[in-house]
Simulated scan of single mutants.
Amino acid sequence: MNLQDKVIAITGAGQGLGRSMAVYMAQKGARIAVIDLSQEHMDETKAQIEAAGSSASTFLCNVANEQQVEETFSAIVSQMGGLHGLVNNAGILRDGLMVKAKDGEISKMSLANWQAVIDVNLTGVFLCGREAAVKMIESGEGGCIINISSISRAGNMGQSNYSAAKAGVASMATVWAKELARYNIRANAIAPGFIATEMTAGMKPEALDKMTAGIPAKRMGQPEEIAHTVAYLMENDYVSGRVVEVDGGLRL
């Protein structure tokens, strides 16, 4: 896929990795549908896209809400003239041990914290992927869907909810690649390692040093390196059903 003038939707594009992806692909000529829950953040992303020489439209949407997702993807097509790519990037964290015993007391991960992560990180990816596929089939032009997984899909302590969701979105990408190939729609996933974002910037220096020391590359990844991988998967029409790990050699 040549990204020039293609419409690429990105969830969670108001900041962090999503914003980096949006700006990177805008520099290649893509027009970006910015999807997020914060209008302020989306406006900031839109300004950076325009500074990069392309255009964007913003769409307020809770990806875990079926009606909102359906309305959002219909609006993208009507306002932007089509849909050629989707990056399922939106996600949340509610980390905690499944059970923890201390001083005779046992605490548990709440069902609310389990469900919140599953709703956004797994169900939200399903809903957005489904609606994007519908629009791509209706247009007859095909397209590409990329799910943002994580190396935590292999199972990371304190992340029962997150790991389960990220394993699920990686599997869905493989399933969709098989199901949607007949419509000229490809699907892939990216599993980032530790990436330097606003979230990691708030960590204590000693914790960051310890984390970085365990990475064979001895540094965290940069958001632009994930964005570069997104663009590669969008552009290479013979890559489908793959999960690309971008983690500096780290394996959990």
Rank of each mutant, 00 (worst) to 15 (best):
N65G: 01
N65I: 00
E66D: 13
Q68T: 01
Q68M: 14
E70H: 10
E71N: 13
E71G: 08
F73M: 04
F73V: 03
F73Q: 01
F73N: 01
S74P: 00
A75F: 00
A75W: 04
I76D: 03
V77T: 04
V77K: 00
V77N: 00
S78C: 07
S78M: 06
M80F: 09
M80P: 03
G81D: 08
G82F: 02
L83R: 04
L83T: 04
L83F: 13
G85Y: 07
G85T: 08
L86D: 00
L86I: 04
L86N: 02
V87T: 11
N88W: 06
N89G: 00
A90C: 06
A90V: 05
A90S: 06
A90E: 02
G91W: 03
I92V: 14
L93A: 15
L93Y: 15
R94L: 14
R94F: 13
D95E: 12
D95S: 09
G96K: 11
G96Y: 06
G96P: 10
L97C: 09
M98H: 15
M98Y: 12
V99R: 11
V99T: 12
V99H: 10
V99G: 13
K100D: 13
K100L: 13
A101R: 15
K102A: 13
K102Y: 12
G104L: 03
G104M: 02
I106V: 13
I106N: 04
I106Y: 07
S107C: 07
S107M: 11
S110V: 11
L111N: 07
L111H: 08
A112Q: 12
A112H: 13
N113F: 10
W114G: 07
W114H: 05
A116T: 13
V117N: 03
V117S: 04
V117R: 05
V117E: 02
I118C: 12
I118E: 05
I118N: 10
I118F: 12
D119W: 08
D119E: 09
D119Q: 09
